[in-house]
Amino acid sequence: MKIHLKIWRQKNQHTKGEMQDYTLTEVDEEMSFLEMLDMLNLELAKKGECPVEFDHDCREGICGQCGVMINGIAHGPLKNTTTCQLHMRSFKDGDTIYIEPFKVKSFPVIRDLKVDRSGLDEIIAAGGYVSVNTGQAPEANSILVSHEEAESAFDAAACIGCGACVATCKNASAALFTGAKIAQFARLPQGKKESAERTLSMVERMEELSFGHCTNTEACQVECPQDISVLTIAEMIYEYNKAKLKK
């Protein structure tokens, strides 16, 4: 099929970007979206032009490295699906597809569709862990975790850190990302001891990094590849309030 592309090209953080037009004539509908971009890049390379830079690695929806705005939607038209798992059968012959990077303050554009999401790592570094050194761990079955606790902790822990929640949020908030990690530990006995410190420091870090403030529009869960529940955000706030009160 024939596909028209309008792609954001930007040299670096400090230069202005703009949309450029490309047309691919032999797109196969079994191709993945990224394979379609590969095809474009091959054509560009053959013409001696610089390929469109985009992020990707596992191409199976788990590493979280891919992620662009496709027709103005984070990860494209399918809900709960990463960019790499989107296939061209979701488009029609003759379609025009707009491809842009995640455009939020806290994810500066590096080049074209590549952005810097290190802010998410910073939030984890602020406290997204149980502080246990190698060697300190007690026998695994001495910490009992009920089936429900484990499952609900998993639901929150499944986050792949792609940043689509931030990109899709009108407030550019990282509440779902942060909430998911805080909720994971709030739901497990292992994480309880340092829960107050963790929550305060992660939430504060999130704010320092100039992510926006959540107003519960719930868009994030719709675009989240792992369908992480927005209730984790409320859980984060609960934990936060609890920690504040304790202090």
């Binding site: 695994a140 910490i143 009992l144 009920s146 998993f154 822990a157």
Partner: peptide
């Protein structure tokens, strides 16, 4: 065996029986 201890302590949500055991 120690790896499982370590991972559980870190909060890795391994599958559990209804009793809470791994």
């Amino acid at each position: 065996a120690s790896l499982i201890d370590q991972a559980v302590a870190q909060g890795v949500p391994f599958g559990r029986e209804y009793s809470g055991y791994l």
